[in-house]
Computed example of a mutant assay.
Amino acid sequence: MTIWIKRFAPPPAPGLRIAVKDAIDMAGEITTAGSAAVRDRALPAAADALCLAGVRASGAHIVGKTTLTEMCVSPVGDNAVFGTPVNPLAPDLIPGGSSSGSAVAVATGQADIGLGTDTGGSVRIPAACCGIVGLKTTAGRVPSSGVWPLAPTLDTVGPLARDVAGVITGMGLLEPGFTVADAPARVVGRLRIDGVDPAIEDAVDAALASTGIPVREVRLPGWDAAFDAFGTIVVHELWTAHHALLGVEGVGDFVEGGLRAGRLVTQAEVASSLAGRAKWQAEVAALLSEVDVLALPTLPAMPPPLAGYAGFPLTQLTALFNLAGVPALAMPVRSPGFPVPVSLQLVGPAYGEELLGATALALSSRGRSPH
């Protein structure tokens, strides 16, 4: 069972089927966080995570808790203990993580909506790898109480679905009453980052051109410098939250390495990184005051093989929007000849999910078949 860590009884009547990443507490269930060490020490959750309140109130049926990479740390989607979900579009390629099980459950039709978490791309990356839609929400918009922390100031909860309309429905479960904006973006800022496959860029450009929305080339000069701040904050907050797991039997090598890196971070480095984050947030906010949304690919190339992903920069185009705290939506676009459809990433201002939804709907209506 590589998609599911635990499956529940099928719904008694037709309705929305929800897959919940096993980093999100459900009352009476153990939250494994994809880790044998966590599972073996955990007690059943006393209450649901707050983000599930809308799901429960809606009458939607939670069909299971899904596999993830250990403790949400890796963006690959693999898990040596609970199994690695198979990418349904290209079984030899990674499924993407850390919300791998939720993405594959949706992509294979075993759930209508998946709930995942995204700290550096963990909703958007598996959405891109599996040819579906995923939304990283604004930092703090969806409550994180009861959600396993990786880096609490970067962690977000967001929905995955097979299409944009499904993600909008999922956002309505996380925030009852959510609706999209009346109109899409008036101006899109086209962001280009060095090292992206030109064929990926071409597919993104073609998708944007199909909408007729004006597109303007933009830059974020602080991009490279912001990565240092992101990396330091992630491992520092991982260490702060989970230092008691260092050296514990059952913790995998990748997480162990992250904990050891976090232990070495100095207070001076933390202070420098927080200052770098503030500068980066101001830079992104300033650009998003000039254009309505930003557009760029979600991944710099096709997803790598599961047998050889080392060195692939999976979070290159996603992580810095967690650092900025802004929402970002990943969606497939028409890209004939690719094993997996190219994924376009739309980035909006803080609390701009409504605008992202309207803009993504405009894009999807121009090209209904992404393959």
Rank of each mutant, 00 (worst) to 15 (best):
V106Q: 05
V142Q: 05
L160G: 09
G131K: 03
G131D: 03
P184G: 15
T137I: 10
T138A: 08
I113F: 03
I168F: 06
G140S: 12
T117L: 13
D118A: 03
G170W: 01
R186Y: 01
R186C: 05
L135F: 04
V123H: 07
L135A: 14
P152C: 08
C130V: 09
L135H: 13
G116R: 04
G146E: 11
R141T: 12
V106A: 03
A105P: 07
S144G: 15
T169P: 10
P126M: 07
R162F: 00
Q110Y: 00
V167Y: 01
R190P: 02
V142R: 08
A107F: 07
A111W: 01
D112S: 08
G121K: 13
D155W: 05
G177H: 09
S145F: 03
T179P: 05
K136I: 06
V167W: 02
V187R: 15
V180W: 00
G189A: 02
A151T: 02
S122T: 06
A151R: 09
G158F: 00
V133A: 15
L191C: 09
P152Q: 14
K136V: 06
G177A: 10
V106E: 00
I113K: 09
G121E: 12
A161P: 07
T117M: 10
S122H: 05
A183N: 13
R162D: 01
V147D: 02
P152H: 14
D182H: 07
A181I: 11
T137K: 08
V180Y: 00
